[in-house]
Each structure stands twice: as C-alpha cells, then as structure tokens.
C-alpha cells in the first residue's frame, strides 16, 4: 500500500506504479513504450476524475487531513511577494500553531494569520499539531487589531484539529480567547477574508473565522465537532465517523447551500497536494478578486454588512 495515497485512492496508486515501472523499463530498452505509457496515464487521469467526482463526505475529510496536504506556510510562501512573520501575544508567549505576519498580495500590504499543523514529526510537535492555545489566539488578535490601525486587510487560513484541550489551555482562558476574537473580528474596520484550507474544527477554527468572506477549498472540511467525536457521542464508537460526516454536512457544497460559505475554490485533480503551485494560484486569484471587491466598499457599510450577515445565521 502506497502511503502517499488514501485507501480509496489505491487503484490510482497501482496504475501510477505501473506507469513508473514501464518508464524505467523504457529508459534502458529500445522498445517504444510511449504509447502504452500515455494510454495508462490517460486511464489514471480518468480514474482519478471518477473517484474525485464522487467523494463521500468522509472521504473529503480524509483528503482535507491528507499528510501531504499543503499547510498555511506552503501557501504563504507561494502567494505573498514578501512575508515578515511577527511573534508573540505580548502576555505569555508565542504559539507556533498560529503563524502571523505582514505580507504583500499583488503589491498591497496585508495581515496574514494562519493555523499551521507542521510537516514531519518534529515540526508537528513544534507546531503542537496545529492546535492553538490561548496565546495563539491572542497573538492573532493583537495582529488583527494592528491591521485595523494600519488599514491592512486581514487574510486568515484555517486548518486545525481544534483548539488545544489541555490543563494549561483552560487555566489561561482558551474560551475567553476564542470568544474575544469572534467579538472583535465582528467589528474590525478593515476587510477580513477567511479561508478553510484543510480542517476547520469547531471553536478552534471560528476563532480566526469571522469576516466578510468565508471560502473553502474544494476538499476542505468545516465542522462543529469532528466526525469521530460526533460518532463517539451517538454510536459510542469513532468507527461510525463516516456516518457522522454524512449527517453533519461537513463539505463546502452543503455549507454553501446553507449560506454559510461564500465560495468554493477549485482544487487540482486529485486534491491540492497533487499540485501545490496550481492550488496556490487558484487561491491567490480568488483572494485578489475578493479583496478588490471588498476594498471598494466604504468601511461603515462593510462592517454593517458583516454584522447583518452574522445576525442572519440560521434564519431561513
């Protein structure tokens, strides 16, 4: 089994392995196998297309958590012309699960805030697996308030398995940190665009998720409780997570129908991790376009619209 592929992708993995093998043979053989390789490549492309056009909600969750899925830093590197990271909440510490700083998007200065899971064991531990503590959200808050003072739009990239559930988190007021961020983001006088790039888990996600636009990458997921957690409560086993994912509607298509998500950003065939550069391009294009629109609205109207939108959540 190829670990770079999810279990439902194994047929693709097998085809790709065959292609690779043929190409190796082709290199030290006079036989012309180009035709055969091309045929297989086309077959693989079609297979990927078929599988990905029919993903179940649970499969989407798996793609959203794919170990090779691009994280916030991957996008920050590719989307912004320059980026200066800013550290610390000025009160307790610097949370590595949240990255923040000033970047330039097509020349215009923006404040970027992103949840970062980290790649590889060491970096994952360093980033606490993308689970922020209170100081992370307070760093985000400090930077967002700064952005308002200096008239910089705010772009947030959401990707977390949840705010960190630990003793220290509770002692330092994780609930207050999340609540305050939402409260302040609801009124900041600067455009805010939030994008779920991977896993948007509950309070840990919405703590940097209140704004004028909410985007989701095509195979990202956003939920109030993880499918495993939901399954644990209802069926007393996390093995029923696929059912829970189905019931909760954790994908962008359903959330867009509910009027919660504004826009779904297309991913390359087979998911963002198959072509990170292309994904970054798609995301950048959407961000630039949305920012152009938002910056043409006067700030009073912008903030009032944001507030009215918040008040309307759940209304039919």
């Amino acid at each position: 089994m190829n670990l770079n592929y999810l279990d439902f992708e194994q047929p693709i993995a097998e085809l790709e392995a065959k292609i690779e093998e043929l190409q190796l043979v082709g290199n030290d053989n006079a036989l012309n196998i180009t035709e055969e390789v091309n045929k297989l490549k086309e077959k693989s492309r079609k297979l990927t297309e078929t599988i990905y056009s029919n993903l179940s909600p649970w499969q989407v969750v798996q793609v959203a958590r794919h170990p090779q899925r691009p994280y916030a830093m991957d996008y920050i590197e590719r989307i912004f012309d320059e980026f200066d990271e800013l550290h610390g909440d000025r009160r307790f510490g610097d949370d590595k699960a949240i990255v923040g700083g000033i970047g330039r998007l097509d020349g215009r200065p923006v404040m970027v805030i992103g949840e970062e899971k980290g790649r590889g064991v060491n970096e994952k531990i360093y980033r606490n697996f993308g689970m922020p503590k209170p100081e992370g959200y307070r760093k985000a808050l400090r930077l967002m308030e700064m952005a308002e003072r200096f008239k910089m739009p705010i772009l947030t990239l959401i990707d977390t398995p949840g705010a960190y559930p630990g003793i220290d988190s509770e002692e330092r007021g994780i609930s207050e940190a999340i609540a305050t961020n939402m409260a302040v983001m609801s009124r900041l006088r600067t455009p805010i665009i939030c994008t779920v790039i991977g896993e948007g888990s509950s309070g840990g996600a919405i703590a940097i998720g209140v704004g004028d636009k909410l985007n989701m990458l095509q195979y990202s997921t956003y939920f109030v409780i993880s499918p495993e957690g939901c399954a644990n409560i209802i069926w007393k086993t996390s093995e029923k997570a696929p059912l829970a994912a189905e019931a909760m509607g954790v994908t962008s298509s359903i959330l867009q129908e509910l009027g919660i998500v504004d826009s779904t950003i297309a991913e390359p065939m087979g998911g963002a991790h198959r072509d990170i550069d292309q994904m970054a391009k798609n995301l950048k294009k959407e961000l630039v376009q949305q920012l152009d629109n938002l910056q043409s609205i006067d700030l009073d109207t912008l903030v009032q619209n944001r507030f009215d939108r918040l008040m309307s959540y759940g209304n039919s």
């Binding site: 609801s186 509950s202 209140v210 939920f223 909760m248 509910l258 918040l310």
Partner: peptide, 25 residues
Amino acid sequence: ARMQEALISLMQMAKTSAILERMKR
C-alpha cells in the same frame, strides 16, 4: 454547541459574540 445543527450551531457562537460586542461598545 448542538451537533445536530452542525455549522449553524457554530455560527451562533459568532452571532452571540457579535451582539455582545455591540452592547459593550
């Protein structure tokens, strides 16, 4: 939050926080 209303429940967190921020201001 009530999981049977999924993201709609999550959005109530933002909604209630926003009105409280107005009261505070």
